[in-house]
Design a protein around this nucleic acid. Sequence first.
DNA 1: CTAGATTTGTTCGTATGTATC
DNA 2: TGATACATACGAACAAATCTA
Lengths: 244, 244
Amino acid sequence: MRRIKLSDQVAEDLRRWIARENLGPKDRLPPEKVLMQHYGCSKGTIREALKALEVEGLLVMQAGPNGGPEIQATSMETVVQQMRQYFHFQNLDFKDVYELRKTLEVMVAENVVGRLNESHFDRLQANIDTCIEASRNDDRETGRIVEVEFHDILCEACDNPILLLMCRFLNAMVRDLVIRRTDSLREHTAFGQHNIDAHIELLAALKRRDSDGVRQAMSQHMHCVEGFMSSLDATFHMDLLSRG
Amino acid sequence: MRRIKLSDQVAEDLRRWIARENLGPKDRLPPEKVLMQHYGCSKGTIREALKALEVEGLLVMQAGPNGGPEIQATSMETVVQQMRQYFHFQNLDFKDVYELRKTLEVMVAENVVGRLNESHFDRLQANIDTCIEASRNDDRETGRIVEVEFHDILCEACDNPILLLMCRFLNAMVRDLVIRRTDSLREHTAFGQHNIDAHIELLAALKRRDSDGVRQAMSQHMHCVEGFMSSLDATFHMDLLSRG
DNA sequence: CTAGATTTGTTCGTATGTATC
DNA sequence: TGATACATACGAACAAATCTA
């Protein structure tokens, strides 16, 4: 049995404190000096505790007068990164990703029907235009990345935050799977063309608020994409650890 | 633009190091002293960097000879905890949880048909027995918790690690939603009885390897549970931050 | 079982960078 | 511009844990 580190005890106490006092974004914890006195321990210990909460995305350190540890809502990017990191040591297959994507992307598509505003439509259209441009230039790398962004934009409008997180994570995994691959140009060209067509059809159905059409289009799109992915090399060992 | 902290730079470099050298569980990073020399910075800085990777679940610190930072695979519990933490600042509804649970639990149930061994069956049966016992004693608190464990056991046998993680997370959220509530005894009794019946039916269908029966039983079970949950008080603000 | 060696855990003191007024 | 308040970083020391002889 290992003794619990002092810094971990402090970190846990700070978490409970935030929860109990119901502290939220823009609120601040006391500065290091005060925390040192409160917990009766040294600066290094306090700093390690705060570092833990910082890594969890719960706060940022602010220097200067009226500075100190400022609480913030953990960002989705932080959690998605943690999830990617977890799967670094699991051996994943693209079929695992698509088993879920086939279901969840359709849920999202249905969910956002009637909830998209003009700004969403504009961005989706701009995304498609960028894809077309990349396709013309045979720029496979950016093409693949921008295509995934289409789905990122879609799930932004989703009213279920859990579903939103899961789809964002799956999209991140798709990016990890698809980039930096040197497959044949022919396959990539066909892949890119399908994505453009499917996204155009989806956007049209979304503008019509045609629930059935949206579901059908997305479902078919996912099946096609899965087919393309399976035709590419299945083995991969991506660097899921590093940021950016 | 804020300057990037030295400890964060070191942490990021260590992550890349682990990925590049393809280090895995049981491997070790150099001890603090060596890292201090390598990066030319002080002990406190190195410790903060290691603390970051420790929080991410990527390593544990070991004292003593042949000690040092030992790499480990990030545990599922660590990631689930991070996900719970993220939703502390989102306003979640139980309907968000069940919108996904209705779909994913059915996927799991179908997935594990024919993949459960005798050990699984024994544990599922033992779980049901514990539920019956808790029901007899009107022990609502443990009853609710053990019921969720039934689903935790099920998804253990799932061969899709992403689906496994997502269901484990949803189960954790269900626990957060359901425990420490003081609803009427009548509702809890009916709830508990339904769960016992549904789990018995599920276990039987699983033993028969009856895919259709399993899917149908789980689907119906989820709809019933959602109904029970909606009859309870919907407002909640759980302590998603603290561990344990 | 004890004693010493190794490595992390924690403290104190000090200096420097940075944001606010 | 300068003064203040805060985080960031360094260095030296000691305490505690853990392995080995």
